[in-house]
Nucleic acid binder design. Structure first.
Lengths: 194, 194
DNA sequence: CCTACCGATCGGTAGG
DNA sequence: CCTACCGATCGGTAGG
């Protein structure tokens, strides 16, 4: 059961196993006893590393949000056209995602178990992230690179599709991060028609 | 709290409220007491309509699976080209989905809480559904209507995107089922480029 | 359909 | 980091 640890701190081990279990069973269906067993401890011992079950979820969700954000910063100011900006943004997103699929899956599917004020903060961050993608698309429509369309729908569809990669991606299974990004990019940029 | 009932049977009321709560909070985070309260009963009373909590989930998941399946039957044998078959399949899927967004959301997100043998059966049905979409795409590539690509990835992306509509669709909010189907179809068929 | 209850399991804590 | 435990809540049942 579980991830190779080696030099990881106990806290990081717990976080990784938690992400894995939260992805597989869901946050609510994963007990602290399940998690403790997966990491080789007794249930009570986890509380010397995390104050509560929800704090583990918070750490996973906000760390991932920050990583996705960080990647966008350099792209938006790049001196290039909209299509390449979008391609870079997709590539960056897929890179983070393939590095930590379990954490990304939790970030996408389990955030609703956060409680306020964290829940509100998280929703705000996600909205910001979408907004920055929308801006790239909007600019591309303005300068006629992209076809006019429902930008909100497009971005929601795109981000959902990217994030769904976590559900089938297997590290080291031959389908590389770069290839996934390329294939997904072609679907959304070129479409289906010949 | 909840849906307008009117002439619905008690059993159907319970099923609808359950779908709503399972969507909002997740299956594991929804207690039979929560559900009972939403439908105006005591917890124990639900068991005169459903044998267990999981039976409610089963009913929702398999009923939706059957409805999605039924729509495909007539489309596959239609005497038309691949593009129109795909458009019809998308339209049919979105029609079912907008009719019962909560049930569809549970069908998409909560099925993992089913237990064998139902879990295995459900996974098989989903795979079959994907396979039938894949066949449409495959045929379209063969006859050169569609561009060659990773068909598995395309269909996974398409179905995920369609199903995600449940997360933001609001009945009677002006964005019609037909318009959603049309916009999503254009994204996947035409792509982004002008 | 309700009341009253069951055994099991949950998140979390004290004390070492 | 473990042992031993807490109060709360869970899915489900009996009996009416």
């Amino acid at each position: 059961m579980g991830v190779k640890h080696q030099t990881l701190s106990r806290k990081k081990q717990i976080e990784q196993e938690a992400a894995l279990l939260f992805m597989q069973r869901g946050y609510a269906s994963t007990s602290m006893r399940d998690l403790a067993q997966a990491v080789g401890l007794e249930a009570g011992s986890i509380y010397s590393h995390f104050k509560s079950k929800e704090h583990i979820l918070q750490k996973i969700c906000f760390d991932m949000a920050n990583r996705f954000f960080a990647e966008l910063d350099s792209i938006e100011t790049a001196n290039t056209n909209s299509q390449e900006k979008l391609e870079l943004a997709i590539k960056a997103h897929i890179d983070v995602l393939t590095e930590d699929p379990a954490e990304t899956s939790v970030f996408q599917n389990e955030w609703k178990h956060l409680k306020d004020p964290y829940l509100g903060d998280f929703i705000k961050m996600r909205k910001d992230y979408e907004l920055r993608f929308k801006q790239i698309i909007q600019d591309g429509i303005q300068n006629q690179e992209f076809r006019a369309q429902n930008v909100t729908l497009f971005v929601a569809t795109l981000l959902t599709s990217l994030n769904h990669t976590t559900q089938w991606y297997k590290k080291g299974a031959g389908y590389s991060s770069a290839q996934i990004a390329k294939d997904l990019t072609e679907i959304f940029i070129k479409g289906l028609l010949n």
